[in-house]
């Protein structure tokens, strides 16, 4: 009981007081992450000591599904959260004060991409029109996967209202397609590569890159309040993270890179070898993010226009 009370107090104090940094003491920041290849630069920056060089100690709290990252950010339990553009914008539009401080992951500039809609090889599903009246698996409704599944159906001759979107976690999607519980699934790596190379499923389309090449998808957010109270910490975090971006881009595919990725994703070497590796970036162009905001408005995730530049903090914009 005493433990509980003290840790509650501690959590409250932690959330309220800005962290004081001294010259010889590292400032601790907590980052909510998802253990996927998209967060490689962050893990690189931790492993290679880039954060410590910048005076930061980074504690990560990974969540496999990623569902609690943004609530934890809003509550002050973590200072930075890796999430997708749609969820961050949704929170920001609800007045939670989320701002993107660093870039995370982008999709490919052309097929093959890191995420795609798949169906059984003999199903003959090649466009959104082929999906009329059918069921497609998405990992969560009202998120970026769901949004781009709808946009792709409309963009390829179908009607996004004509199909059912069923929530299926990524690890179960291949079985759901094979077992005919869904007709198609919006799948991400490593499941996408595994399913295609096993011949269980075939690609119907690449919603991200077909709608917009090099789409900014994953990114790191902080709250406006935290940014205002800790500008140096935020700047140091982004600088060290960006060093991780450079390192990940230069060393992609090397043994050391593979070791770092395997240590937090727990992917086996053979799965890692099959993965597509895309470049990481340090800036997000508001023009590249705006179409996502516009799609959110079109599909009723937002009730009014939302400007991408309002979501992006200086640290993630081109200097």
């Amino acid at each position: 009981m005493k433990n509980l009370a003290t840790s509650t107090l501690y959590a409250a104090a932690f959330a309220l007081t800005p962290l004081a940094a001294t010259a010889d003491e590292l400032t601790t920041v907590r980052v909510s992450t998802i253990p996927i290849i998209d967060t490689a630069p962050l893990q690189v920056a931790i492993t290679k000591g880039f954060f410590e060089e910048a005076g930061l100690k980074v504690d990560t709290t990974p969540t496999a599904g990623g569902a609690v990252g943004l609530p934890a950010l809003a509550s002050g339990a973590v200072q930075f959260t890796f999430s997708n553009s749609v969820s961050i914008a949704l929170g920001a539009s609800q007045g939670l004060g989320f701002k993107v401080v660093a870039a995370g992951s982008f999709t490919a500039d052309a097929a093959p991409d890191i995420a795609g809609i798949v169906a059984k090889p003999d199903a003959g599903i090649k466009t959104g029109a082929d999906l009329a009246g059918k069921t497609v698996a998405v990992n969560t409704r009202n998120n970026i996967i769901w949004l781009y599944a709808k946009a792709w159906v409309d963009a390829t001759g179908g009607s996004s209202d004509d199909l059912t979107y069923l929530e299926v976690p990524f690890p179960q999607m291949l079985d759901a397609v094979k077992g005919d519980q869904v007709d198609a699934a919006f799948l991400v790596d490593p499941f996408l590569t595994a399913g295609i190379s096993a011949g269980d499923v075939a690609i119907s389309g690449w919603p991200y890159s077909e709608i917009q090449p090099s789409l900014p998808v994953g990114m790191y957010a902080a709250t406006e309040q935290y940014i205002a109270e800790n500008p140096e910490t935020v700047a140091a975090f982004v600088e060290a993270y960006n060093k991780g971006v450079d390192w990940a881009n230069e060393n992609a595919g090397t043994d050391e890179w593979a070791e770092i990725i395997a240590s937090y994703t727990r992917l086996t070497p053979d799965r890692l070898a099959g993965l597509k590796i895309l470049p990481y970036y340090k800036v997000i162009d508001p023009e590249a993010l705006q179409p996502t905001m516009d799609l959110m408005l079109k599909y009723d995730l937002l009730s009014s226009e939302f400007s991408a530049s309002d979501l992006l903090h200086d640290t993630v914009l081109a200097k």
Binding site: P35, I36, A64, G65, P190, F191, R266, L267, T268
Partner: peptide
């Protein structure tokens, strides 16, 4: 967390 990670790591 272990169960979730291993699921996502295809193990």
């Amino acid at each position: 967390y272990y169960l979730m990670t291993m699921q996502y790591a295809m193990q």
